[in-house]
Design a protein around this nucleic acid. Structure first.
Lengths: 220, 220
DNA sequence: GATAGTTTCATACAACTGTTTGAATTGCAA
DNA sequence: TTGCAATTCAAACAGTTGTATGAAACTATC
C-alpha cells in the first residue's frame, strides 16, 4: 500500500458530504469530485458504496464504544467490580452525547456525520447497529450488578429509556430548540448528560410497586 | 370524481408495500403492479411520488394527533381546565404507542407503515414532522398548567424525554426484544404506556434541586 | 346519441445511479 | 534500466428511477 492518499481523501470527502447533505442526495460522483479523485477509485479501494459508508460508520462507532467501555471499566474498577448506577449510565450516554452535541459551529465533521447516521438510517448502517447488542449486554450486566434487587426486565427498560433519551435528543435537537424557543440549551452538553442520567437513574431506582401502580391509577 | 377506485387502490398498495419493505426499495412500478393500475396513475392522482408518501403519512398522522388532542381535552375538561400530569403524558404517548405496538401478527398495515416512517425518515415525511411543533405546543401548555411551579425549560425537557421514550421504543422494539431475550413484553402495550408515563412523570415532578445535583455529583 | 370532461393506458423520455472495463500511468524491486 | 504489480483514469455499461406524452377508453350531461 503505497500512500493511502486516495483512500483517505475519499473517506474525508465522503464524511463531510454525508454530514452536510445526508446520505440520500450525495452520489459517488459528488464524493470523488470533492476528493479530487477518479470515480472508479471508490470501488477499487472500498469495493462498493455501501462498504464505504460502513467503514465510515464503523470507525466512528468503534471509537464511541471504546470510550464507553473505558469509562465503564474505570468506574467498576474503582468501585471494586461494582459501580454506582449513575456512573454506569453516564458511561453509556456520555460519549455519544458529547460526540454529537455541543456548539454547532464547533461541531466536528465526525459529530455531524454521526447525527446524520442517527437520523437517516441507511441499510449498511442499520446492519452494523444490529451487531451492537453484544456491546449493550456489557452495560446490562454492569447495571444488574449495581442494582441486584432489580428484575432483568426493569434493567432492560431502564437501559432502553436511557438510550432513548440520548438518541432522541440528538436526532431532534433542532426541533427541541425551536419548540422551546431556545430555552433548552443543547450546547451545554454536560447539562444534557446530567438530565438524561438523572431521569434514567430515577427510572431504575424508583420504588418498584409504586412506579407501575401510580401510572396504572392514572390510566383509571 | 367518479369512484376513487384507482386512487385508493394506490394508497392501499403503497401503504402495504412501504410498511413491508421500506421506502427505499419500493418503486412506483412495484406499487402500481400491486394495485393493478397503470404507472401514470400515480402522477395523475397525486402529482408525484413524494406527494403520495406525504398523503399517506399525513392521513395517519392527523388521526393520531386528533386522538391525542381528544384525550387531552377530555382530561382537562374533567379537571376544570387542569389535568394531572400523568394523564396529559398518557394522552401524548398513548395513541402513538397503541397505534404502533401490540402483537406483531395483528398489527395493522397503518401501524407498520408508521413504524417504517419513524425508522426511515424520508424527505417528504421529515417536512411534515417539522410542522408538528404547533401540535406539541398545546401539550407544553397543558403541562405548564399542570405543573405551574416548574420552569419552562424543565417542561420542555420532560416533553422531549416522553416523546423520546415512546418513539425510541417503537423504533427499536425489535432490538429491545432481542437484547432482553423476550423478557420485555412489547405486546403488552398498556404496560409500555404505563412505564413511559411513569418515568416521564418522575422526570417532571422530581425535586428540582435534587435532580440536577444528584446527577452532577455522579459526574464528580 | 353526440359532446365535453375525466380517467386510463402503453410507451417513451431523460436523467441518474453504482459498477465495470481495459488501457495508461505510476512506483518500487531486482 | 527493466519488469511487475499497484494504482489511476476516461469511458462506457446496464439498469433503474420518477415523470411526461398523446392517444384511447370511459362517464355523465344535455
Amino acid at each position: 500500500m503505497a500512500s493511502d492518499h486516495t483512500r483517505s481523501a475519499i473517506l474525508t470527502a465522503a464524511e463531510r458530504l454525508y454530514a452536510d447533505r445526508g446520505f440520500s442526495d450525495v452520489t459517488l460522483r459528488d464524493i470523488v469530485a470533492e476528493a479530487g479523485v477518479n470515480l472508479a477509485a471508490v470501488n477499487y479501494h472500498f469495493g462498493s458504496k455501501d462498504e464505504l459508508i460502513a467503514e465510515l460508520f464503523v470507525t466512528r462507532s468503534i471509537a464511541t464504544n471504546r470510550e464507553r467501555l473505558r469509562e465503564l471499566k474505570a468506574a467498576e474498577e474503582q468501585g471494586g467490580g461494582r459501580a454506582p448506577i449513575e456512573v454506569i449510565l453516564r458511561a453509556l450516554v456520555g460519549p455519544t452525547l458529547r460526540g454529537c452535541l455541543g456548539p454547532e459551529n464547533q461541531r466536528s465533521t465526525a459529530a455531524r456525520f454521526m447525527i446524520r447516521a442517527s437520523i437517516e438510517s441507511v441499510p449498511p448502517i442499520r446492519r452494523i447497529k444490529n451487531r451492537e447488542i453484544d456491546h449493550l449486554r456489557k452495560f446490562a450486566g454492569a447495571m444488574r450488578r449495581a442494582l441486584p434487587e432489580r428484575s432483568d426486565v426493569d434493567i432492560y427498560w431502564g437501559l432502553n429509556f436511557a438510550l432513548a433519551m440520548a438518541h432522541h435528543t440528538i436526532r431532534e435537537s433542532e426541533r427541541l430548540t425551536k419548540l422551546s424557543e431556545g430555552k433548552c440549551d443543547l450546547d451545554d452538553v454536560e447539562d444534557v448528560v446530567a438530565r438524561v442520567v438523572s431521569v434514567a437513574t430515577m427510572a431504575l431506582t424508583a420504588g418498584k410497586a409504586e412506579t407501575k401502580a401510580a401510572a396504572r391509577v392514572a390510566a383509571r
